[in-house]
């Protein structure tokens, strides 16, 4: 089989090395790109991200990466968003002040509070991910599998019902979503031992 080429969108936020290593490990070729005209030609693109929503959106808009992502989606190509990358899909985030997101998913992003979760913040470590049978991202894994999280904000779960997973951290939140050819996880598959490698392999197999 011809090896697949995965584009990792580099906009200066997050650990790109580990993702690149994980896809290499799975036999894919990796291109790390920041030029929107090159990014939009990708068949498989990864939107990673760690840190500030506000700062990320500013960079993404300034460099026209939002337009490149829109083009990938309208061509029907594949997009996988991780951690802050998943949150950026939202209509907006209440981090510091309200910032508009990419608006691809109608939900909003908000901070965990100690008051509602009765848990320490950030949510850091392995936690269980619950999903319904037939969710192709989790093929071969059982509901309740552990994945690694590190975040203080999360996508609020309203509006989407199908093809999502839930995780509990005092409150239930959306830990992954699938919508058409868009895949997103709040957790880090590239940091989740063999469980995460399996999930990334599932994603690569979906991208036929």
């Amino acid at each position: 089989m011809k090896s697949k080429t995965v584009t990792i969108i580099d906009y200066g936020m997050g650990n790109i090395g580990s993702l690149s290593n994980a896809f290499n490990y799975l036999g894919a070729k990796v291109k790390i790109l920041s030029d929107p005209y090159k990014i939009e030609k990708s068949n498989i693109a990864i939107l990673p991200g760690v840190g500030s929503f506000h700062k990320a959106m500013k960079i993404i808009k300034k460099n026209s990466i939002d337009k490149a992502i829109d083009n990938i989606i309208s061509k029907g190509d594949y997009l996988f968003c991780i951690c802050l990358g998943m949150q950026l899909l939202a209509s907006g985030s209440f981090e510091d002040k309200f910032t508009k997101g990419l608006g691809i998913i109608p939900n909003q992003v908000d901070k965990f509070t100690f008051k509602e979760t009765k848990n320490k913040i950030p949510h850091v470590g392995f936690n269980q991910v619950f999903f319904e049978k037939g969710n192709k991202l989790f093929k071969g894994l059982s509901s309740g599998t552990d994945f690694y999280f590190v975040h203080s904000y999360r996508m609020l779960p309203e509006k989407m019902k199908k093809n999502i997973s839930r995780t509990n951290y005092g409150v239930n939140f959306m830990s992954s979503l699938v919508k058409d050819n868009i895949y997103a996880t709040q957790f880090h598959p590239e940091k989740s031992q063999s469980n995460g490698i399996k999930l990334l392999d599932n994603f690569l197999k979906i991208t036929q």
């Binding site: 290593n21 994980a22 989740s192 063999s194």
Partner: peptide, 12 residues
């Protein structure tokens, strides 16, 4: 750091 991140898929 680079050597470790190449070989293990856990947080470093």
């Amino acid at each position: 750091i680079k050597t470790f991140t190449k070989e293990c898929f856990i947080p470093i």
